[in-house]
Design a protein around this nucleic acid. Structure first.
Length: 834
RNA sequence: GCCCGGAUGGUGAAACUGGUAGACACAAGGGACUUAAAAUCCCUCGAUCAUUACGAUCGUGCCGGUUCGACUCCGGCUCCGGGCACCA
């Protein structure tokens, strides 16, 4: 062993019961920054496999909070482990720097949001560095910089060319306090996701991106995401909300108009007894023109739907329009009603009502005394609709030529009938709507469009990009200062040269965060959004880590954007793949007293205070040890103390090196210790490979530390085994507590910094034991333990078990029925009274 | 209503493909060292019964099943958390 070279410089001050976290950490952070060990090689000749580890980038809100700390410590542990495993690791960081809080702060402090943002970035960068996170800072990006958002603008103009970005007047969600529109995804329970104010419906001209064109792909490709939590995949599937059915055209009696509806149950078409349309439906609006009672009702509907938070419990109300629709098959006239539960924004804003087979239609029909016609029955033919709707699939009755068909078959047959008579067709309907990307805000990426009276909305030509956001404007609340900034707004039309106006809206900040993972790969490119070769080398992200709160919003948009970039030819989709994140880890929240830490509740812990008191290694160790990564973590001061105690205990293990290697070799104990060492390597490695169970990995290392502590060093071989154990421990601790490990590694005379060492390998020979303790069970209950050779056969084991007094007394008066030997584990004896 | 999770000591949790339930920690209690404290070290720590030892019985939300053997698999529930929802 390398005992000869071992310089135990540590020994001189062994009265130091505590290690000096502050000095050690600063020392190593300086050293790492100088040696550039966190910068991956971008050299094609590098033989190592590449690995891209990414954590969700922070919004520069001012200070790091514990949620950040947890997120970044998890990512750092992964990145460091992979490096030690021999991967060439890309681990970048940056700032999601546009957004509303900067504007709010600007109003409060009467300084432009840029100042606040850049100051916060500086502050938080310092905090991240103090945590000793192994980022490649040379790739740092801030989304509010023109060199970043110019590519987003470029992309948007390309999407306009392709018809994937468009402007339209639409009923949108408006938040008054935030003074802007919101995407559907940003409305939670009818309220703004940021300020929790109920949103108002407004008709406004806005920019959209056609995410619905990608609905099917976004859904299909979910199957590729086996490395994602099922929960997140399910949430996305739910959000996209695919339903298959048919679109059916009803004609309107005494009119040229057509009433189109979507249904998932064309098999119940023959049971239609009335129609229901939304209050905003053209047919309803027209009918109300000379019906004041109806007009009043429509108005009531439009106000209620936005005010009422709990829409689901709202009373179902309706009113007849006095108009009839003609059934496409029977030609019968059925009344058209307006109903407050029909949504204008989904499907066609109209539904066919089959009260016999739909709960909601049933209630409505009962309330307003409308006909109920049963057209489906069960296998036994006795389904009853006198008390409630029969909503299951079944067999058709009262359906003329379709009688006797089963629901599944009937759906196809009826849809086909409609199609061939030009009265309908098969149809897939998604819940997902197009992504509303314009915001009436200042602190965001300017939308690269110029409005010309003659040419309309013209995309800013590539040569004129970026459209730079003036950073010196002062928001005062109310509308965006950009909308009043003449110097920004007044330009010539790029097409005709006439005086024109720039678009004053900016992009939703989710635009920036939708492609940053790919930008890191070519972070400094001035010639392209991403470099195709670099993309091939690094994308997709191997491991993405962040909060589950982004399960729909950010993760859906990023998946979408990746596909857009692929289809734009920015990289080879065959080689890079269609999904941006291969594996996803959604970490739990950091709680205090059972609730999420938040300033308003006053239950926060300042990371800087913890670092100052214990050092960042302790903070890192605690956040990783206290709970499995995906679970919520309850902050416990005593737990932090415990983590710190552990590090000091390891520190003190070095005192044992000072003892001279005297006495006889203890062959048995050396073998046992070496076995423990290699079992630990096995356990820790498995924990890393198996869902990043860092809590388990650390527990195993604590066990090893305990074994080393109680190990009685005897003889040269004893000392060698002890040193081997220390080396393994220090090496394996380094992804968690890198500074501490490096310092310990130096004491141990490592040839490299501990964080650059190779991950230890299991010595299979050390695991082998000649004698094992075999558990003896009677009827599956543990009754004793016997020492046997590792290869013991069943007969010998049974003989030894019978000879064991603890076991023997359970065998008295019993006949052995069956014996099961599980090699290396146990012997189970099945008996019955003799 | 639909879709996902989850339920193990006082607490956070562990248990790889069914094989010694509670590793590792926190808290608590006791002890050693100390003039004292801090720090450190040692012991106890699922429940019940028993005891001079040895021990025994029960125990992973509830009920049932499969198995030599179930925290783990199957069927049926209960409760808790998360997501979606007058979605046609």
């Amino acid at each position: 062993m390398l005992l000869g070279e071992l310089r135990v410089s540590h020994s001189g001050n062994c009265e130091h019961k505590h290690y000096d976290a502050q000095n050690i950490e600063i020392k190593w952070q300086k050293q790492w920054a100088e040696s550039g060990i966190d910068v991956p090689s971008n050299d094609a000749s590098d033989q190592r496999a590449n690995y891209y580890c990414l954590e969700m980038f922070p919004y520069p809100s001012g200070n790091l909070h514990m949620g950040h700390v947890r997120n970044y410590c998890l990512g750092d542990a992964v990145a460091r482990y992979k490096r030690m495993q021999g991967f060439n690791v890309l681990h970048p960081i940056g700032w999601d720097a546009f957004g509303l809080p900067a504007e709010n702060a600007a109003i409060k402090h009467k300084r432009p949001p840029a100042e606040w943002t850049y100051a916060n970035i500086d502050q938080m960068r310092g905090q991240l560095k103090r945590l000793g996170l192994s980022y490649d800072w040379s790739r740092e990006i801030a989304t509010c910089k023109p060199e970043y958002y110019r590519w987003e603008q470029w992309m948007f103009t390309k999407l306009m060319e392709k018809g994937l970005a468009y402007q339209k007047e639409a009923e949108v969600n408006w938040c008054d306090p935030c003074h802007t529109v919101l995407a559907n995804e940003q409305v939670e329970d009818g309220a703004c996701w940021r300020c929790d104010t109920p949103v108002v419906k407004k008709n406004l001209k806005q920019w959209f991106i056609k995410i619905t064109d990608y609905a099917e792909q976004l859904l299909d490709d979910l199957d590729q995401l086996s490395g994602w939590p099922e929960k997140v995949v399910g949430m996305q599937r739910n959000w996209i909300g695919k339903s298959s059915g048919a679109e059916v055209s009803f004609s309107v009696e005494n009119s040229d108009e057509v009433l189109d509806i979507f249904t998932t149950r064309p098999d119940t078409l023959m049971g239609v007894t009335y129609m229901a349309v939304a209050a905003a439906h053209p047919l309803a609006v027209k009918a109300a023109e000379n019906n004041t009672e109806l007009a009043v009702f429509l108005k009531e509907c439009s106000t209620i739907s936005t005010k009422e938070a709990d829409v689901a419990t709202m009373e179902k109300k309706g009113m007849a329009l006095g108009v009839n629709a003609i059934h496409p098959i029977t030609g019968e006239a059925v009344p058209v009603w307006v109903a407050n539960f029909v949504l204008m924004g989904y499907g066609t804003g109209a539904v066919m009502s089959v009260p016999a087979h739909d709960d909601r239609d049933y209630d409505f029909a009962k309330k307003y005394n409308l006909n109920i016609k049963q057209v489906i029955t069960n296998a036994a033919g006795d389904a009853d609709v006198s008390e409630a709707a029969y909503t299951d699939a079944g067999v058709l009755i009262n359906s003329g030529e379709f009688d006797g068909l089963k629901s599944g078959k009937a759906k196809k047959t009826i849809t086909h009938w409609l199609d061939s008579h030009d009265k309908g067709e098969e149809r897939i309907q998604y819940r997902l709507r197009d992504w509303l990307v314009s915001r009436q805000r200042y602190w965001g990426t300017p939308i690269p469009v110029i409005h010309c009276d003659d040419c309309g909305a013209v995309a800013v030509p590539e040569k004129d990009l970026p459209v730079v956001l003036p950073e010196n404007l002062q928001p005062t609340g109310g509308s965006s200062p950009l909308a009043e900034c003449e110097a920004f707004l007044n330009v010539d039309c790029p097409q005709c040269g006439k005086a024109a106006q720039r678009e004053a809206d900016t992009f939703d900040t989710f635009m920036e965060s939708s492609w940053y993972m790919n930008r890191y790969i070519s972070a400094r490119s001035e010639t392209a959004m991403v470099d195709a070769e670099d993309m091939q080398r690094w994308a997709p992200v191997d491991q993405y880590i962040g909060g589950v709160e982004h399960a729909v919003l950010h993760l859906l948009y990023a998946r979408f954007y990746h596909k857009l970039m692929r289809d734009m030819g920015l990289f080879d989709g065959e080689k890079v793949g269609s999904e941006p994140f291969k594996n996803l880890l959604t970490q739990g929240m950091v709680l205090m007293d059972g609730t999420k830490m938040s300033k308003s509740k006053g239950n926060t812990v300042d990371p800087s205070a913890i670092i100052e008191r214990y050092g960042c290694d302790t903070a890192r160790l605690f956040t990783l040890f206290a709970a499995p990564p995906e679970k919520d973590l309850e902050w416990e001061d005593s737990g932090v103390e415990g983590a710190h105690r552990f590090l000091n205990r390891v520190w003190r293990l070095f005192e044992k090196l000072n003892a001279d290697a005297v006495g006889e070799d203890g062959e048995k104990s050396v073998k046992d210790l070496r076995r423990t060492i290699h079992i630990t390597i096995e356990k820790v490695t498995r924990a890393f490979e198996h869902g990043f169970a860092f809590n388990v990995a650390i527990a195993a290392q604590m066990e090893l530390a305990n074994a080393l502590q109680s190990f009685d060093i005897q003889g040269e071989s004893g000392k060698a085994a002890f040193v081997e154990g220390l080396q393994a421990l220090v090496t394996m601790l380094s992804p968690f507590v890198p500074h501490f490990s490096c310092e310990c590694g130096e004491v141990l005379g490592f040839e490299k910094d501990a964080v650059m060492m190779s991950w230890p390998e299991v010595d299979a020979a050390a695991l082998v034991q000649d004698e094992i303790a075999l558990v003896v069970q009677i009827q599956g209950k543990k009754r004793g333990e016997i020492m046997v050779s590792k290869d013991v056969n069943q007969d010998d084991a049974l003989a030894l078990a019978k000879a064991d007094s603890a076991v023997a007394k359970w065998l008295e008066g019993m006949a052995i029925v069956k014996v099961i030997l599980v090699k290396g584990r146990l012997l189970n004896i099945v008996v019955r009274p003799a």
